[in-house]
């Protein structure tokens, strides 16, 4: 077994474009759940409208990519309003149900035959992000020791991690302001916040929109990264990866989602390469495990890891364990 290559693979996974995209979407989710207490189980829906909002105008109408990204953001705002207006006045669980359902409904609409002229249906659309790669300042691949990123991946990573850090900075500024104080008070007790003259509906809506837009930007980047888009990328499970990432890093910590995404992708690629190599070199006899099982079994291990984390560090890696012990009634 080649440990060095396993480790370099894992590090590539931990800092690669996917990790940056997941981190950005999880920052939005953290604003929803970690700071406002909104149960959004449909963050993938925001990613979907962001991704298609970016790609469709380029392919179907020949608009420049940046207009597409703006349209993606507008779609996320519209989705947040659509979900928020009827449910945010109700108890928290209604939003949870509405978001998980909306994300699935959207996926089916985007893959339907009816939408095929625009979205390409199940076949999807490709080659819409050439504008983005035209701006790539990196000319050659990045090779340092075992690391090897193509110029394009490097460009996506730069934009992705840069955007994620900017989003974290913005969230930090917002949370440590009186606005953030109201948001956190809504998380703790809506009625108390109302009794002190705060319009909680408006704050929940602002949070839903802002976090949704971050999700949409992550979706845009996801589309740009692969230059190919099919609706079935946006399965509900993606939302739950984001939840895992947020809880892993520590909900209601500014950098929680970032650390969570890095650890999540490190573990995932580490297990993947470790198991594949172990099977390949015969350390694990081929009767026990086929290399085709690896994809599934690594998620089982991530689940196990999450369970252990919840047992020993329930507030996540960055969370203040003391906060969890407060008697929250």
């Amino acid at each position: 077994m080649d440990l060095l290559s396993i480790l370099s693979n894992s590090l590539r996974g931990a800092f690669g474009p996917e990790a940056a995209i997941y981190a950005l979407a999880a920052v939005g989710l953290n604003l929803h759940f970690g700071y406002t207490g909104l149960l959004n189980f449909g963050q993938v829906g925001f990613m979907l409208v962001g991704a298609y909002g970016t790609a469709v105008p380029v392919v179907a109408w020949g608009l420049p990519l940046w207009v597409g990204i703006l349209i993606g953001i507008a779609c996320a705002i519209a989705l947040a309003l659509l979900l928020g207006v009827p449910t945010l006045r109700l108890r928290g669980d209604y939003l949870a149900i509405a978001t998980i359902a909306a994300a699935e409904v959207l996926r089916y609409i985007y893959r339907s035959e009816w939408a095929e002229p625009l979205t390409g249906g199940v076949f999807g659309i490709t080659q819409f992000a050439n504008d983005f790669y035209d701006f790539n300042p990196f000319s050659g691949p990045f090779v340092v020791g075992p690391f090897n990123f193509s110029a394009n991946a490097l460009w996506v990573m730069t934009v992705g991690w840069g955007g994620t850090l900017l989003a974290c900075g913005l969230v930090a500024l917002l949370i440590h302001s009186p606005w953030g104080r109201v948001l956190r008070s809504v998380r703790e007790d809506e009625q108390a916040a109302r009794s002190l003259g705060k319009n909680i509906f408006s704050y929940k809506m602002q949070s839903l929109i802002l976090g949704g837009v971050l999700g949409a930007l992550a979706g845009s980047l996801m589309a740009i990264n692969t230059q190919a888009l099919t609706p079935d990328v946006f399965m509900p499970i993606l939302t739950f990866y984001l939840w895992t990432i947020m809880i892993l890093g520590g909900a209601s910590r500014i950098m929680g989602p970032v650390l969570g995404a890095i650890v999540f992708w490190f573990l995932l690629t580490f297990l993947d390469s470790l198991l594949r190599q172990a099977i390949g070199t015969g350390v694990i006899p081929s009767g026990w495990l086929e290399s085709s099982d690896v994809g599934a079994i690594r998620f089982a291990f991530v689940g196990l890891g999450l369970m252990l984390l919840m047992m020993f560090r329930p507030a996540g890696l960055l969370g203040k364990q003391k906060e969890l012990r407060l008697d929250v009634r």
Binding site: R184, S185, R187, E188, D189, Q191, A192, A193, R194, S195, L196, G197, K198, N199, I200, S252, E323, L326, D327, V328, R329
Partner: peptide, 20 residues
């Protein structure tokens, strides 16, 4: 919330401290 802003504020039977 508008009533509260006018200067009529209430408390609750079960205290609602904002824990965190």
């Amino acid at each position: 919330h508008k009533i509260a802003r006018l200067g009529m504020v209430r408390t609750f039977q079960l205290t609602k401290a904002l824990m965190r």
